[in-house]
Design a protein around this nucleic acid. Structure first.
Lengths: 227, 227
DNA sequence: CATTATTTACAAGTCAAGCTCATTTTGCGA
DNA sequence: TCGCAAAATGAGCTTGACTTGTAAATAATG
């Protein structure tokens, strides 16, 4: 672990501080976290922390940025092999909901993100890359004609992320409610609203096939002499 | 407005403090607000504030409770004369979105709500009465058969409030995006997913149920060896 | 290697803000 | 007018983020 160059040693220390900060923030929330504790846990004097991060807010920002970076990577992975639009959306939704539930504290940190007036107005920069995963799926769906051309991108996106966030809250509050059905419901909802040929053709085909089968069966039964 | 009884004077002072606090919180956010300023604005010594509200957190809680109480009243009013389910939902959505946009700071205060670990876990109690407005509409819609009977109440609710909140953020960020279309889109989405359709659908649903029944029966028959 | 320069680390100290408490003021009944 | 409890006060206390003067470690130079 012993680094050689100055640069490496500095980076190593920065990571140590960030890690300690992550621990503290998750453990106690933003306000609850003590800079003194973070310093101690990182094996560093309190003043040193301020050489690496100008303020506590900065430290949190770095932590949150890391977090969303991670999520983005995982999201891209989860979506990578999904071809059809709603399949990809379902995969993304499932992953997103999972993460929301598991790490809700961090997500809340992001959003409330120290809103001392005039303090870092654009705190949700981190989410941009994350949200872009959705955007890519959506745009591709439009290009392929799998989505109706009157769909308004950002409204669909707000429904997607908004309802998932609220669902995560609900599920956390009432542990009896399941996540699977939330994703199914959301995707079904989006499908009925935004999919081209929402359901009609397939179901019609299906019922026609079924009718044929029923007819054949009944015909057969009719041929069988009653006893 | 000089009060007479002791009780009245006390209540008047409490209101003055709350009002000053509201001003400070909206102006500067929770962290930015200074107890000293609040005291001064209420025309009271700093120590006095603590006779009425144990902590700063308490003060914010009272403020937020007031806020949601107000909203609830307005929501009930907005919905009162709407008969049909989706008409009522549209009215509620429009009002909610309007409030979210205008007073987003307060709403964010509610949610981030000082999450010092172990500090007042149920901070969103205030919203209960508010959310109940939605619940009433929904339940009535179910009773009247205007909503499909497979609808899961809380999931619909999460879509409703979740997407509105996200839409509010989006609209605040990009002032070019209009609120009217958001409400329309949301209601349309919910309708397509949850409404029992007036003309065709009921019979279709019915025949689909019938088909299922027939299919099951025939499957059973098919398995039975011919006699 | 010795010396100087620069970067990195430290911890004692400053400051601001929430909150406490000993003391004073107020208002009401007798 | 007196007594007394309720209400109010504001000078401190405490805590925690941040500063800063000083020292150690490392690199550059001759």
């Amino acid at each position: 672990m012993t680094a050689v160059t100055r640069r490496e040693r500095v980076e190593q220390k920065e990571r140590a501080i960030l890690e300690a900060a992550a621990h503290a923030f998750v453990e106690s929330g933003y306000d609850g976290a003590r800079m003194a504790d973070i310093a101690k846990r990182a094996g560093v004097a309190e003043g040193t922390v301020y050489l690496y991060f100008k303020t506590k807010t900065d430290l949190m920002r770095a932590f949150v940025a890391d977090f969303w970076g991670d999520l983005t990577q995982r999201a891209e992975q989860a979506v990578a092999d999904k071809g059809e639009t709603f399949e990809a959306l379902a995969a993304l939704a499932a992953m997103h909901l999972q993460n929301l539930i598991e790490r809700f504290d961090v997500v809340e940190l992001t959003q409330s993100g120290r809103v001392r007036r005039g303090d870092t107005p654009g705190n949700r920069e981190f989410m941009k890359a994350y949200v872009a995963v959705f955007d890519r799926i959506w745009r591709r769906g439009m290009d392929r004609g799998e989505l109706i051309d009157t769909a308004i991108h950002w409204q669909a996106r707000d429904i997607f992320f908004g309802s998932l966030e609220y669902a995560a809250r609900t599920i956390r509050l009432h542990s009896d409610r399941t996540q699977g059905s939330v994703v199914d419901n959301l995707i079904e909802t989006l499908k009925q609203r935004y999919a081209v040929l929402p359901d009609q053709k397939p179901s019609t085909q299906k019922s026609e096939r079924l009718l044929q089968r029923l007819e054949a069966a009944v015909t057969r039964l009719e041929k069988t002499p009653n006893r």
